[in-house]
Design a protein around this nucleic acid. Sequence first.
DNA 1: TAGACGTAGA
DNA 2: TCTACGTCTA
Lengths: 163, 163
Amino acid sequence: GKRVNTYKKIGQVPGIQVGDEFQYKTELRLVGLHFKTMCGIDYVKMGDVNFATSIVASEGYDYDDKFDADVVTYTGEGGNVICKGKKSEDQKMVKGNLALANSMRHKSEVRVIRGQERLDKKGKRYVYDGLYLVDKYWSEKGDSGKSLYRFKLCRIPGQPPLT
Amino acid sequence: GKRVNTYKKIGQVPGIQVGDEFQYKTELRLVGLHFKTMCGIDYVKMGDVNFATSIVASEGYDYDDKFDADVVTYTGEGGNVICKGKKSEDQKMVKGNLALANSMRHKSEVRVIRGQERLDKKGKRYVYDGLYLVDKYWSEKGDSGKSLYRFKLCRIPGQPPLT
DNA sequence: TAGACGTAGA
DNA sequence: TCTACGTCTA
């Protein structure tokens, strides 16, 4: 079985290879890839600053993330509707969004896990795509009229090819 | 590793022993004990009738379930508040509640999984307690003033003792 | 589309 | 207490 990594860290995870697949988000925690059950951006505090450790990006979902060869365009977190009748809000540069911005500034590696819709459309599976660097980010208006963040991540060369 | 059971069935699950522990609710699905990620009552249709396959009962939680030696008193599902401002409602004899009532009438076995709060209070773990029969159920007023169902389940004799 | 005994962290 | 790219069935 896979080795269990309980320590949240930046960069490569021992025993995990590019292309490894997982059936549930909780498995990502068991192996040490991504410790947040429901959040797309995980991060850890180094000194006084939060750095992103990993993101879970999903194809063909509401978030409009894009996978283009070795470039991922990822939508920030926050601003979503919880209760019917409430409006969505502008995303803020806090928590996971701030951690990704910090990772860009310090050129800190970010693990990318790709959530793939299953063919039977029953849930997702998760594939480890390797290490990326945040190249830039910007804010734009979403379909709701509220602003959201986009992060452009570029895959670090020299890793096994994507499957 | 554990054998993977993908077929939802009533009664004993191959390879699973009383006392087996699991860290996440999704693991219960992987081994075939309980297929619903968030619902406490799982069930399967036999002919025209839904029968309960399993319940996940939790100590020291809002639900006021009781574990007393070989008797479990379990609270039905439904009636909960989703949005702030909405009132809770009376529980209805549908879905999981109906399945448990059917299991009682037909003396059909129900697996009981016990959700235990961890000592560090970070989430729960799940222990398989074995097979039970529904002895009776009734409706009562909850703290909210709305009615809820209680199911009394009795452990079938001859199984390994509870840990 | 909504509803259900999920989980961890801020 | 609340949010957050959960996950399945009816």
